[in-house]
Design a protein around this nucleic acid. Structure first.
Lengths: 323, 323
DNA sequence: CTCAATTAAATAGCGCACTATATAATTGTC
DNA sequence: GACAATTATATAGTGCGCTATTTAATTGAG
């Protein structure tokens, strides 16, 4: 198990499907070997239809699919094999000529008999032996799980699960790389990195923290840091909101909004009288967010600070509506 | 569950593999829908390798297979897809040029991040919801089952399971058809049905039971009747062993021997002084069995009774070795 | 130092589940 | 009574597990 155990057991519920598949394949593989040893020319998957036909007599394809709880094409394919092996035969004895009635041949009964004597007891005993050592009944669990899923499939249950909760996180020097990486990602997507960017990204402590600003991070529970922004103290009681970005993969969970609210609060706590930002029209989504949370476009700011970045063609100032 | 429940639950252990497979496919299908809704371009099976690479860093193909506990070709195939999607990249950075080192790309990390935010929590919550209602922990059972199978696979466990036990069963009129069917099967395989056969097969009570003979059946536990034979009283203290046959599908579980021993005992109990049988050289396996249990070839018997069947060219008399 | 054995990855091909869609027979409606 | 809707089966194609085999690189033994 070793390393596998780690991933698989940690995220056991996530990988349940894969594990069941792997387990099922392993079981079926072993059953194939048992069947071969008995010299019976069938596949494990053939037993379910054969046994069903023996029990309930001739059935149509659709009836078989319903009885076996598998799809009709799966039944059709298995039947094609069974026909080749001459273990079943099909007749059109229904008045409705679309129905195809399948029944066991003498050979089919023979194979079934042989399997009941030489295969089934072996398989059942072996499986029972394995299950026996487990606490409780795996079979009952599977029964229960199947009927639960029949009631309400997984993807419906998933519909109403919220995104993981977000939380705030303060700058430490350990996070310098993260700060840089997040910023580089969005800058390089739309723009090119400028000297003014590098200055801050390479020296966050010296350029932001020490002058009395702040760098905030947003993290999603169980995931890690997904976004950041900085408040750069550009003068007494004057802060630039800068380097705000959310990892591209983390868009859509409102991390930007969360971060911006936190930044505004923090700026206030730091005694900001002017909170402004510099941006570019290409960052339309970001600008909409700024507007939503109370930033207004301001030509004066653009004139005063716009030269700081080459890409700057938008400047905004925080001025919440009196409400 | 209706009809399906019957077959599947009755033989739950036999169909465990099929059921797990069906269940796994259903789960994975639902997960696919959740993934699609989140707009992430991957298959559920991609998550295990992606997560493993994220956790353990660049790995070779074989290392991945070991970590995921799946076959190397399965890993190779999945990696081919991930390469197409540009979620991983491969390098030959090992000194040994056979190794191929796989690592996540930025895009791969992005997809993983997005999935952690929008897919995994949903899947995990939905699966947990389903599992929650079950008594005990399905996951633990699967863990246990996997390690049990790793220790000792099913087909090894199956090796030492005996065939189902045989038991004897007396004639009733309900079994007339079974008696006929078993006999017809072997007669038609090697010979053709003669009037003398039909006489007995169509009137077992009148021709065998009422004159003071017996019809015996052998049944296998949980399977049903698999063989029969008759003791026909041909004169006072004189019995013909006849219509002895085992269904073709049931050869190999020593049902014939079981039956013959029982017939000899019964003949004795009925006061037989002469127990004989008529057969044909083509039935070599049967004749070997007769010889083994104490029948000897007897020309006199052949002369006296041989004309009874056209196919008769062998006649034997029970004469156990004094031991 | 060569050549066979071993090892890593790729390829071929199967089993068996699935979905989506095509085809053919039947039913129901205007 | 024709024609659209429905229904039973077949076909096409995917996903993902498997085993067996091939190919290529490396190691090790005579």
């Amino acid at each position: 198990m070793s390393t596998a155990g780690d991933i698989m057991s940690e995220r056991g519920t996530l990988f349940l499907g894969s594990r069941l598949k792997r387990l099922a394949d392993r079981l079926q593989g072993d059953v194939v070997r048992i069947v071969e040893r008995a010299g019976v020319p069938v596949q494990p998957s053939h037993y379910a239809p054969l046994a069903t036909l023996e029990r309930f007599g001739p059935l149509t394809v659709t009836e078989l699919a319903q009885a076996l709880q598998i799809s009709q094409p799966a039944v059709t394919r298995t039947l094609a094999r069974l026909l080749e092996l001459k273990l079943v035969e099909t007749l059109r004895l229904h008045r409705d000529q679309r129905h195809k009635t399948v029944s066991l041949t003498a050979e089919g009964r023979e194979v079934l008999l042989r399997s009941k004597l030489l295969v089934w007891p072996q398989v059942e005993a072996a499986v029972a032996e394995v299950l026996h050592t487990l606490p409780g009944s795996l079979l009952e669990h599977i029964d229960a799980l199947e009927s639960q899923l029949a009631n309400r499939p997984l993807n419906e249950r998933a519909r109403c699960v919220p995104a993981p909760p977000l939380s705030l996180c303060e700058y430490t020097d350990d996070l310098a790389d993260v700060f840089r990486a997040i910023s580089v990602e969005w800058i390089e997507t739309l723009y090119r990195i400028e000297p003014a960017d590098l200055e801050v990204l390479d020296h966050p402590r010296e350029r932001i923290i020490e002058p009395g600003g702040a760098i905030l991070f947003v993290q999603a529970q169980g995931v890690g840091i997904i976004g950041t922004c900085a408040l750069r103290k550009s003068a007494e009681r004057e802060f630039e909101l800068t380097k705000m970005g959310v990892l591209r993969g983390a868009r859509g969970v409102k991390a930007g909004e969360f971060l911006l609210r936190a930044a505004i609060t923090r700026a206030h706590a730091l005694g900001a009288e002017l909170l402004y930002l510099l941006s570019n029209r290409k960052s339309a989504a970001a600008i909409r967010l700024y507007e939503k949370l109370g930033f207004v476009h301001d030509a004066d700011i653009l004139r005063r600070f716009g030269a700081h970045y080459q890409r700057c063609d938008v400047a905004m100032r925080y001025q919440p509506q009196a409400s």
